[in-house]
Design a protein around this nucleic acid. Sequence first.
DNA 1: AGTTTATGTCAGTATTGTTGACATTCCAAG
DNA 2: CTTGGAATGTCAACAATACTGACATAAACT
Lengths: 173, 173
Amino acid sequence: MEHAPYINRADSLLYLTDEQLRQGIEAMFFAYRGFTSDPDRILSDFNETHGANYGRAHHRAIHFINCAPGTTVNNLLNILGVTKQSLNRVLRALIEDGLVESRVGRMDRRERHLHLTPEGRALEQRLSDAQRARMRDAYRQAGPQAVAGFRTVLEAMMDPNMRHAFTQIQDGS
Amino acid sequence: MEHAPYINRADSLLYLTDEQLRQGIEAMFFAYRGFTSDPDRILSDFNETHGANYGRAHHRAIHFINCAPGTTVNNLLNILGVTKQSLNRVLRALIEDGLVESRVGRMDRRERHLHLTPEGRALEQRLSDAQRARMRDAYRQAGPQAVAGFRTVLEAMMDPNMRHAFTQIQDGS
DNA sequence: AGTTTATGTCAGTATTGTTGACATTCCAAG
DNA sequence: CTTGGAATGTCAACAATACTGACATAAACT
């Protein structure tokens, strides 16, 4: 970017051609597959050795409970964007298996505050270590400037509501 | 970025902290949700008005058949990364409804070459218009440099096999 | 006391993935 | 030419995850 050349209007908008956009769409598709493949594998192993039936839904629940310990079911519902029935099935399994603990709220005793047990944290570690490793490799290959651009585009691609939830989480809810 | 300050080793690797990586993981999650939300809505509408039951799997099939007309089932299988049985269910519905045409191969009559019918192309247009519009908005907000970084990181995040398939597609299969 | 809110549960259905079994077609070795 | 294997595609059954709708319980609010 040093000696930045003269950029005319056409060049500066080349990245908005339909072909470029299609490539972006497909890159997103393939990258997301890579992004989820490691946790999927780890969960398959875990299921075999522990006789469980966990999938991506369980991973997501564990991830966000770990991020925001003590979060309520309702809060998790909003973040994950699924119905309570769907989340409940997942949480019930995790609680029964002792990976998640559900504590009745002290202020509002209708609420259930969710925490990972040591076992839950152990699984979360395995999952997020793998996912971070892939992200770290990608980040390292790409370099800091590319990473900044990556984050900028991703945030612009979120639905506004979710962008709000996202930045809240980043600030440490 | 003007008056670029002295950057020591620690600063230059700040983007690789666990916290930064976690944020990247979550950004990916929320962005992908946004990325798929428009097609999901369009397919829901289509299903209601046409009495169909299409989902993301049908969208992906239509997308890649449109990209590579005449592709075989096996080829599509590799791109999509699902079992042939799973893809077959999807293709059967699309063929029965007249959105996709399956032609027996002339060289190898075991192969089926897939093409979109005019109706299939019409639906593909609606879907990809919406997805491109979101991508275009995000790209426009972020600017060309961020887009370049976005693409770089996404490609680094793919599985190597998929990166191969991806770049092949970009070169025009 | 009555309403709203937060949560949990049950039943039913749809999408999308899996495996297993099988049919068809091609090709190559005997 | 035939036979056996490999490639390709189809059918059937099952599992995970989502959805909607209905309802129960308990706690908070008014």
